[in-house]
Amino acid sequence: MFSDKAKEEIQQVLKKYPNRRSGVMDVLRIAQRERGGHLVKEDMEEIARILGMQTVEVNASAAFYTMYNVEKPVGKYHIQVCRNISCLLLGAENLIKHMERELNIRVGETTPDKKFTLSTVECLGSCGTAPMMQINDDYYENLTAEKIDKILKDLK
């Protein structure tokens, strides 16, 4: 069940769409934020009810995009590192390995204290500042190992 605030927000965003079904992406985003970074069965059922869709359609929309974490809980900070060509050429692979070492987890895993989840993603549209990554809603750009150490330290 969504909070009253979330329900109100959903009704607001749905006004943007002539067809309620088209609002599924926005509503999924709100639901994921409410849940703390991922989506569960009940969320998708609720969304299907609100939008008049089939549950599997909501599921399929969510499963298509890597930004939605379907039934995959993430830590408080979800680190998404770009591994596409510009970032890769500028050393993203080493940065990923560096973070795996620092956090003592592998890509796709969450630290035991549920603070960090490390994932790799496709291009985030910030090639000019490669290599880069996104932590929750913020971009961190022109990364180096030192910068990353500082970012992680600040978050810890």
């Binding site: 089939q54 599997v56 359609e57 599921n59 399929a60 499963a63 298509f64």
Partner: peptide, 8 residues
């Protein structure tokens, strides 16, 4: 309409 394509 109970089947869908999950993932990509």
């Amino acid at each position: 309409n109970v089947l869908g394509a999950l993932g990509r």
